[in-house]
Amino acid sequence: MAKSPTEYIVHHLTPLHVGEGFWTLHLDTLFFSAVLGLAFVLTFKFAAERATAGVPGPIQNFAEMLVEFVDSQVKDTFHGHNPVIAPLALTIFCWVFLMNAMDLLPVDLLPTVAALEGIPYLRVVPSTDLNATFAMSITVFFLIIFYSFKVKGPWEYLKDILLHPFGVWFIPFNLLLRLVEELAKPVSLALRLFGNMYAGELIFILIALMPWYLQPLLSFPWAVFHILIITLQAFIFMVLTIVYLSMAHASH
């Protein structure tokens, strides 16, 4: 049965889910996130196992290019010493980019295939799900707290929270400012990625609602422009993570 434009948009933006309330699970987000994460791991594992000192293959070239790119960002931004930061930054950049890149698939392709298998809803872009972006940003937030506590120690970390920026006489005000500052980090990370990708997906859906002869004229230029957006969003998420972790390693 043909859907109205509103029903079409709502259908494409509704996740495949189970459960109710807080315990709702978005199965499509979990599935595509896991598959794309596994694709990243296997690709780099394949490149590492077949790495050669001679003439490198295309996969090794690609992997080395990404590693060098991320490593240069870490060296320029992170001013401490932590062997976890570079692998973490590489994982974030590649994983977020792959999730964003699912937006370049035709909007009806995978949902139609899923419908043939009896699956009523399917959202294929994990980064258009606020749950996914907040899960990543909250993980980064926990790492910030962990390394702040580990590097500075309990007493120095407590002083950093209570005594900056205005000294001992303004502890309540210092604490309030610190809470706002810390909470803004995961919120800004999550909402920036979600907002840009959700808007991009919505534009693709609106283009799909237009007459067939207009769709190629609009979808191709938007897809080309969108490649810049998905790359930029992955880069921003990675760089902000490095910056926040560098701040966690810094001492006054």
Rank of each mutant, 00 (worst) to 15 (best):
W212D: 13
A2R: 14
A34V: 14
L16N: 07
I207N: 00
L228V: 08
L130I: 15
K152E: 07
F142W: 08
S4K: 04
S251R: 14
V168L: 15
N82Y: 02
L245S: 00
I138K: 02
T43A: 15
L191D: 00
V67E: 08
W222F: 14
A53T: 14
P87A: 04
T128F: 02
P106F: 06
L13S: 09
S33H: 05
V67W: 06
V187N: 04
L110T: 06
Y121K: 11
D76P: 04
K159H: 10
P126N: 10
N174Y: 07
I207L: 04
F69W: 13
M197R: 01
E49T: 08
H81F: 11
T52M: 09
F235Y: 15
L245K: 03
I203R: 03
A223L: 06
P126G: 06
L245T: 03
K45D: 11
L232K: 13
D160S: 12
H79F: 13
L42C: 13
L232C: 09
S127R: 00
C94P: 02
L175S: 12
P111A: 06
A184L: 14
H226Y: 11
E182W: 11
E49A: 10
K159S: 09
L214F: 12
A234H: 04
L245I: 05
L177N: 03
L191C: 05
T231E: 04
E156N: 13
M238V: 05
L179R: 07
V124K: 03
Y147F: 15
Y157V: 03
M1Y: 13
A184K: 13
L109C: 09
I236G: 02
F62A: 15
D160I: 00
E181K: 12
G80W: 04
V96K: 02
P154F: 08
T14L: 11
I242N: 02
Q215C: 06
R192E: 10
F194T: 01
Q215W: 05
F69E: 03
V140R: 02
M197N: 09
N174V: 06
E117C: 15
E68R: 14
V224C: 02
A223I: 00
M210G: 09
S33K: 03
L27T: 05
N131S: 15
L66H: 05
Y244M: 08
A190C: 07
